[in-house]
Structure formats: C-alpha cells, structure tokens
Design a protein around this nucleic acid. Sequence first.
DNA 1: TCATTTTGTGAATAGTCATTCATTTCTAAA
DNA 2: TTTAGAAATGAATGACTATTCACAAAATGA
Lengths: 208, 208
Amino acid sequence: MEKIGRKEREHLAHRGEILRAAEKVFAAKGFFQATMNEIAEAAEFGTGTLYKFFKSKEDLFFILIDEKTEEINGPVKDELLKKAPAIERIKNILRLQLEFIERNRDFFRIYASEGSRFEWKVMSSCGNQIHEKMVAYIHLLAQVMKQGMGEGKLKSMDPLDLAHAFEGIVHSFIFEWLISPESYPLISKAETILEIFLNGTEKKERRK
Amino acid sequence: MEKIGRKEREHLAHRGEILRAAEKVFAAKGFFQATMNEIAEAAEFGTGTLYKFFKSKEDLFFILIDEKTEEINGPVKDELLKKAPAIERIKNILRLQLEFIERNRDFFRIYASEGSRFEWKVMSSCGNQIHEKMVAYIHLLAQVMKQGMGEGKLKSMDPLDLAHAFEGIVHSFIFEWLISPESYPLISKAETILEIFLNGTEKKERRK
DNA sequence: TCATTTTGTGAATAGTCATTCATTTCTAAA
DNA sequence: TTTAGAAATGAATGACTATTCACAAAATGA
C-alpha cells in the first residue's frame, strides 16, 4: 500500500541513525547529562539537524522510549491474541521480554535508570503517555493472571499483585544482568524466574 | 561521653533541617531539576548558607542518601546479629523494610527514581560508595538465604538469585504503593509478599 | 549549465543555576 | 553599650547547554 520514494526512505534512515545515537548517549549518561551536541556528534550530524527531526531534547527522548516500548509491546500483544493456557502465556511473555532486553541493553539502561516512572509524571505530557502505557502493560499481565485463576492453575489472589510481583522479579534479574561484569545470556535466568514465581522458594516436604 | 554545647546542638539542628528540606525537594523534582535555591527556601535559609554545611549539591545529595541508608541498614544488621531461623529473619527484615519506607516515603522516591544505580556509578566517587552499600546489603540477604538452605527450609538455588528475587518483589510492591492514589498501609502487603516468595503462585493439588 | 528547492550546519543567543564572597546580622563577652 | 568574631545572606559571577537561524552545500530539474 505504502509507496515510499528514495527521499522518504533516506529521511527515515537519518531519523533512525539519530535515534540510535541518542539511545547510546542517553544510556551512557542519562537524560540530563547527555547533550544535544554529543548526540549530534555520535550521529554524525550537525547540532541543528537534530531539530529538523525532533522538536526538542525531551521530544527526542520520549519518542525514543515510546518506539522501543512499542517494539516490545507488539509481540507481547500478539502473544495474547493466541488462545493458550495462562501459564503457557506467562512463559512466552517472559521469554519475549528477556530476549528483547538482551537485544536492547542500552534501551533498558535508559528505561530503568531514567525516571523510574516518577520523573516522567513531572515532565512533559508525553511522559504521562509513557506512564499510561506501562500501567496498561501491567493490566494486560494482570488479565493473564486472572485467566490462570479461572483455569484453577494459579492461586486466587489479587491479579494486580501477582502481575507486580512477576514484573518485580523479572526486573531485578534484568538489573543484575545489566550491571554484572560477567556476561551470560539473560534468557538463561528464565527457568529460575519461573520456578520462583510459580513454586516459591520454600522447600516442601515430599508429597505422598 | 560526648558533651555538646548549645552551639553545636543548634548547628546539628540546622543541618538536619536542610537535609529534611532537601529530601522533600529532591523527591518532588529529582536531583537535576531541584535547585539549591529551592532547597534553601524550603529550609528557610539563604542559598549561601547551604554551602556552610555541604560542599556542593552532589555532596548534599549523597549525604542525604547515605544517612538514610544507614538508618534502615542499622536495624537490619541488628536483626542479623540475633540467632534465629532464616525464615524468621526474612520475615523480620521484610517488616523492617516496609515500616521504614512507610515512614520515609520521600526518601524512597529519591532512591528509586534517581539513578537506579547507573547514574551513581557515573557521578562522583561518593556514588560508588552508595552502590557498594547496596551490593553489600544484597549479599547480607543472600547469606540469610544460604542459611535457610542449610536449615533445609529453602530450596537449593543460587542464594544471590533468591536475594534478588526477594528484593525485586518487595521493590515492586513499594513502587506500586508510592504511586497508588489510594492510601493503604504498606505493611499490609507483607503477607502477600511472603506468600508469593515462599510458596509461589501456582495452585497445587491438595496433598494427601 | 544555472536557478531553485531541499537539507544540513555550527556559531551565536538566551536562559538557567551552582557556587562564591563582600556585606549584613546576630551573639555574647567585656 | 561596645565590639570582635561567628553565622547567615543573596546578588553577582561564571559555566554550561538547549535552541535558533542566517548561511552553505547538495540535490533537483529545466
């Protein structure tokens, strides 16, 4: 449907290069300490050029976050369209998340270190928009938890609590992986995460 | 032992007032957007006065974090001196943490939103010092997990993994509590957290 | 080739703040 | 009351950097 000429393609490519450069710089220095000059330099453009593509520094930042967020949310939503038992879904979502982060180390650096939610609420309205998306995501997850309860596979608890607990565990493992000096595949932690989330950590007496 | 005259007492009181004001302002706006003027105003001092007490903005910030961190770490360490079964300890530490945060909403706002670890490593050496403390804390927790395994009460897993998972769950509940519009006692989530951490979320068939 | 439009540039601008320090206000001893 | 010293002040300084814009380069197409 969409016919795009060379011109447009080139424009998009440039935009992409800027975003990629911004991702690196923001990840390394954080929003406030990154300068537009640095980003421009990293992208091999003049400073003024950035403003041909993005309204402001904040704008650049939020668009970066927003697009990446969509990139991970898409596959997760696709997953939720398929009919599948809740526990299967949880496993798949976990895998998707870990794989995405593994491919986007820098992005999570930003996402985690920059304004873990709070600053965003303070910043431009765009910040709010991102916050909304995060809330929406958690609610999706809560839906899955509820489904699991309906299937009799998960204990009856507040589904939101479960969703938070799950994301909490996942995040802490991602954090650890991010700052760990040794490099290991993040996905290798999937089983541990699931084991803890589903079965807990207490050793049980053997069942009869 | 320590004789302190009125003078000194007053000096300490002023220092404390500045720290309290800083806590509020940093919590509301974040490190980079808080200004020294604002903090001074909130503390009802002149701008210059802050510099009689703290070398710089960074200095003020880190000292604030550091002192608060000690305030929570102290009781936790005391707890660890007592002889007690691991699971008992975990419960107590959880209670201590939740109670502390409940009394120090603003502090956790800062702690969580500001440089979840990464920025700190970039910043002054003081940032590193705080990072070290966080690592040390996790290792303490891991020790407790190991103890629990020794007692046959916890599954044999990497103790650090357990510690991370635990902190992950706790943090996510604190986050939620922080941004939640309804106000409820944070401590009320203790049972849920423990239940998930120890027993997991999967519904088990009745044991015989 | 030349005129026109599009795209890119980076020096100059303007605003923001951390920090300083000359001055004022307070304290208490004489 | 006087006065030396301590404590507090906030206007002025100096750095820094987001953003703009007059200009240059490149692309287009006649």
